[in-house]
Design a protein around this nucleic acid. Structure first.
Lengths: 252, 252
DNA sequence: TTTTAGATCTCGTTG
DNA sequence: CAACGAGGTCTAAAA
């Protein structure tokens, strides 16, 4: 970890350009700046924390919010220059063409820190719920047989395609949280596509909850709804898997 | 700006708890931790930068990506404690109930920085485009008369509702960038709702571009498309406004 | 590269 | 507080 305090503009620029690929650079400073690209924004001059990451990410954080005030995503080219005695940090991105330009009036401290690059594995995602439901389709409807997952149709990818006990196609759309009307329209599209391609189909929305208007549309389009509690479901299935594993061990 | 280097756990905890409402706290450290809530994640032990904001936001950044590895949003309650000699940072949020717990094994530096709270005003948003189109509806179609903006229907809010030169209702959906098939389905819903409520309606999608599948659906549903160049449009209308202002001055 | 859809989306606005 | 929709969304995965 390297650290410089109250550096002169030239010193700061050299430090940033030398180390921008070596680790996370944190610049505690007073600056103002602009963003130009898909939209446009101006950052009023004030005290901010600038983060420059080795992957090209540039973030300017204030004292509020989880999201940066201005930023450029990974893959951007960041460079520090001294223009007319002031330190200027330029971040350029192509496709789409976007720029962040920061005029840094005063630098309190710059830190170079070799931060970790580990990614975090998330559990409890929609994909996890789909996996559980595929292994336990009776949760959706007794007698259901899963035909496919992420099945492509002309209207998009179906979370789960199944056959009910009468051999009719069932289209299942899964949401991990509150399903809104968009989810219902999504399901409706998929059902229409399957009906068109394979004759007849029913749709079932599986979610932790549903908004009132989504429920309204669900009835209007004659679609089904199955309420799940993702957390409890995860526990239950974890136990079931453990039980099954034990059984297998016994059988062996 | 306050700064402590290589603090002991007790010292670090005291510093964080004393200052967490006073400014942005940046902790350069080695830590591991967990997130539990809407989903679940485990952060492997490594060097990270922790940001604690006065509004309750907690961010853990690594060397990659624009988004934090784990985080808690504004409004969270953050507290540092020492448990069995190790510094532990706990962040709690209610509704939804979520927690981030970080076990900090080593602290290199903690900085308290009174970062600015200014918000950034964005230009070139969809709202800006809608405003321009309302003032210049001929861009959409010659002879168009705007009836309303953000008009509520049972299917949602219509960006622009207008009447064409024959007195037929026109539903306009605006996208500032590439319109995808969701935008087309959205427009279709609005047109259906207006047709149901007011007799007859046409739909026009106004966007900078359109995906191929969106275009396919557009034709299928017999909806129109008007391509705009938001940036050029903004310039043109800015000039026009200046011209109009001048005219008004002259008339006065 | 384009397209698609999820996300601990976040954030603002409205009822 | 719920609901709705935009966003410079970001991000990963698939075609």
């Amino acid at each position: 970890m390297l650290r410089i305090l109250e550096p002169e503009p030239r010193e700061a620029a050299a430090f940033i350009n030398t180390n921008r690929k070596r680790g996370l650079i944190a610049v505690f400073c007073i600056c103002g700046g602009t963003y130009r690209g898909r939209a446009a924004a101006d950052l009023p001059t004030g005290p901010y924390l600038i983060l420059i990451k080795p992957d090209g990410s540039l973030l300017v954080h204030g004292s509020e919010k989880a999201t940066p005030l201005v930023w450029n995503p990974p893959g951007s080219s960041n460079m520090a220059v001294v223009e007319g005695g002031t330190l200027v940090l330029k971040s350029l991105r192509t496709r789409p063409s976007e720029s962040v330009v920061l005029k840094i009036e005063r630098v309190f401290e710059i830190v170079l820190f070799d931060a970790g690059s580990s990614s975090v594995r998330l559990r409890g995602t929609e994909k996890d719920i789909v996996d559980m439901l595929v292994k336990n389709p009776d949760i959706i409807e007794p007698g259901l047989k899963v035909v496919g997952v992420e099945v492509p149709t002309e209207a998009g990818h179906i979370d789960i395609l199944a056959l009910d006990k009468n051999g009719e196609y069932i289209v299942v759309e899964v949401k991990r949280d509150v399903a809104d009307h968009e989810a219902v329209f999504q399901l409706r599209r998929y059902v229409e596509a399957v009906a068109k391609a394979r004759g007849r189909a029913r749709g079932i929305l599986v979610a932790a909850d549903i908004t009132s208007s989504a429920f309204h549309y669900l009835r209007e389009y004659n679609l089904g709804f199955v309420k799940i509690r993702p957390r409890e479901l995860a526990e239950k299935l974890l136990n079931k898997t453990e039980f099954e594993d034990t059984s297998i061990d016994v059988e062996k």
